[in-house]
Each structure stands twice: as structure tokens, then as C-alpha cells.
């Protein structure tokens, strides 16, 4: 048992695999001596050297393209895109190429690659450095999308992502980097398996990424008001652990989904549609979504706080659902 932050857990997972497998390498903007924009790879340059912890020019398309080409030819690259906002620049390489290659080529080429990228609002970074783009990627056949919350989940799921033979997009929330937790296992956690972060009987709050921490606080408050909330963290967005959701909803009969995405076209909407299509008869009330607003992420703290789906918004949604 060891206490680690989310950031340390991510660094540990990369380091474990890089020590074991010389074909695993990390590249991206400023990941080398500088240690990455948030410090995630700090110290790795000293341990693994410039070939394996490799700085790239500011060329997101070429970063993803280089990951694709090197994964197709024997390496297991981890490519870091500094902010998920910048993934738009590399979208062609990720969508038209990495995601589709295995299918287009009839299974001839496998791409064991991970794209790590940083999500989320809360640091006054405004519209181009704060958003949550997971729905852009869960939409695409051929990609697996992982968005864990706790240090233990970050470590285990990143190990599994590196081990996977498909392109995996691995989201990290910039606010969550400092969250600490107990890490007891250094084994991979299979992709596609969710986890109940808190058991409850009245409502299932489905949350992932940093929203898990907000949902847990919401559940605490709700408990005081006599509402028993279960917090379900799918951890992997695709493939989604539908069985765990069905099990939980079968017990609670109410679902609130929270994510930090723009509400319109969100992955939260996809989960909501799945629950409505396949579990309608189990529901006591319609699903509710607690997402960010449909605005660009604003700069000023007052505006940004109004934009972010907060703990109280989750509490309010659960209560409103029961009225």
C-alpha cells in the first residue's frame, strides 16, 4: 500500500512498462528534460534518456502520425498531446488513420499506441485550454477511450492501455493531478470494467474523470438528507461497462449522469440514451444529465464556476429527479 497522487500514478505506470519493455517510449511536446507542461513525466528523462522520453516540435498531427507509424512497425508508443484542445489539430491522424487502419486494412495492421491528453476546466485557462473533448473520440469506431479518476485506477488503466493492441486515448483531468489515494495493486485494470466508488440504493450517479470527486461529495451531502446515492465510475468510456450500469440501475431505478463536457452532443448523452433504450422499464424517472454549459469555457473565475458542473448541481439534479 502506497499513497500516490494521480500524477505520480500515471508517471509510475509509464515507468513500469518502460523498464520492462524497451519498445515502449514516450514522446510529445516538452515531455523531456522539462518534464511535461504539468510535470507528469518529471524525472523520466533522467531515467530513460532522450531517445525514450522524446521532445517533439509543436506538431500535433505529426505526433499522432508518428505514434501511428511507429506502432504499426514494432513500437508501443505513448504520445502526449499537451491539452486535449489541441487534439483537433491532429484529428485527421487520429480518426481517419489510427482509428480506422485495423479495419480498413482487414486486420492486417495493429496499432498498440496510447494517446495521453489533458482535459478539463478550473484553472482560468479559458476556451482553448480547458474543454473536455471525450465525445469527439468516443464517437469514433476503432478508438478505445479511457478516463479514470483515482490514482489506483489511473495506474492500472494506463498499464492496460499500454498493453492494448488498439489505439487508446487516455484522458487526464488537470485538476485531478493532485488528488491523492491509496495504491495497493500494480497490476493492469482491464479496459471496459467500471467500478462502484460508493454504494447506494436510491440513485445511480454515473461520473468519470474529475466529476467522480464532485459526485462523491454530492453523495455525502445527499446522504445527510436521507438519499442514498451510488457513484458509478465507468473508468473506460469505450468499451462501456453496460453490465455494471444495468446492475446498478436495476437496484436504484434512477440515473443522473455527470460530465464536464458541453452538454450538447456529450458522451453523457450517449450514456443517457443507452439507459433509456435498454433500461427504460427499470427507471422511476427520466435520466438527468449534469454537464457543463453549451458555451466556450470562460476565463474569469466567476464565469468559469458558473460553467463547470459543480457538486451542488449534482445534488440539485438528484433532488429534482425525485420530486
Amino acid at each position: 500500500m502506497k499513497t500516490m497522487s494521480v500524477m505520480e500514478a500515471i508517471r509510475e505506470a509509464m515507468s513500469i512498462r518502460m523498464r520492462e519493455d524497451p519498445n515502449v517510449l514516450l514522446f510529445g511536446e516538452d515531455v523531456g528534460k522539462f518534464g511535461g507542461c504539468f510535470g507528469v513525466s518529471a524525472g523520466m528523462f533522467d531515467e530513460f534518456g532522450p531517445e525514450r522520453v522524446r521532445d517533439t516540435p509543436i506538431s500535433e498531427g505529426a505526433i499522432i502520425g508518428a505514434a501511428t507509424g511507429s506502432a504499426a512497425t514494432g513500437l508501443r508508443p505513448i504520445a502526449e498531446i499537451m491539452m486535449d484542445d489541441f487534439i483537433t489539430v491532429a484529428m485527421d491522424q487520429l480518426v481517419n488513420n489510427a482509428a480506422f487502419m485495423h479495419y480498413m486494412f482487414g486486420g492486417k495492421i495493429e496499432l498498440p499506441m496510447v494517446v495521453r491528453t489533458v482535459n478539463g476546466a478550473g484553472v482560468n485557462a479559458a476556451a482553448q485550454h480547458s474543454k473536455s473533448m471525450e465525445a469527439w473520440l468516443t464517437h469514433v469506431p476503432g478508438l478505445k477511450v479511457v478516463y479514470p479518476s483515482t490514482p489506483q485506477d489511473c495506474l492500472g488503466l494506463l498499464l492496460a492501455s499500454i498493453d492494448d493492441n488498439n489505439p487508446v486515448v487516455f484522458f487526464e483531468h488537470k485538476i485531478a493531478y493532485g488528488e491523492k489515494g491509496e495504491v495497493s495493486s500494480f497490476d493492469p485494470i482491464p479496459l471496459g470494467k467500471g467500478d462502484i466508488k460508493k454504494e447506494g440504493s436510491d440513485v445511480t450517479i454515473i461520473a468519470y474523470g474529475y466529476q467522480v470527486f464532485r459526485a462523491l461529495k454530492a453523495a455525502e451531502q445527499l446522504e445527510k438528507e436521507g438519499i442514498s446515492a451510488e457513484v458509478l465510475d465507468p473508468r473506460t468510456l469505450y468499451p462501456l461497462d453496460k453490465d455494471l450500469i444495468a446492475e446498478s440501475v436495476g437496484k436504484t431505478h434512477n440515473v443522473v449522469i455527470t460530465s464536464e463536457e458541453f452538454k450538447r452532443g456529450s458522451y453523457a448523452g450517449e450514456i443517457s440514451a443507452f439507459v433509456a433504450e435498454e433500461m427504460f422499464d427499470s427507471l422511476d424517472a427520466p435520466c438527468r444529465r449534469v454537464c457543463a454549459l453549451n458555451t466556450p469555457v470562460p476565463f474569469s473565475a466567476v464565469l468559469e464556476n458558473a460553467f463547470i458542473p459543480q457538486t451542488e448541481d449534482i445534488v440539485n439534479a438528484v433532488k429534482a429527479q425525485r420530486e
Binding site: 519498445n23 517510449l25 531517445e51 498531427g61 505529426a62 499522432i64 502520425g65 508518428a66 505514434a67 501511428t68 507509424g69 511507429s70 506502432a71 504499426a72 512497425t73 514494432g74 513500437l75 508508443p77 491522424q93 488513420n97
Partner: peptide, 13 residues
Amino acid sequence: DIAVGAGLSCKYR
């Protein structure tokens, strides 16, 4: 870009 990745792989290995 994919060729760059293949080239990186050749050089790295």
C-alpha cells in the same frame, strides 16, 4: 506523418 513514425521505429530499434 505515418512514414515519420516508421522511420522513428527503424532508427529507434
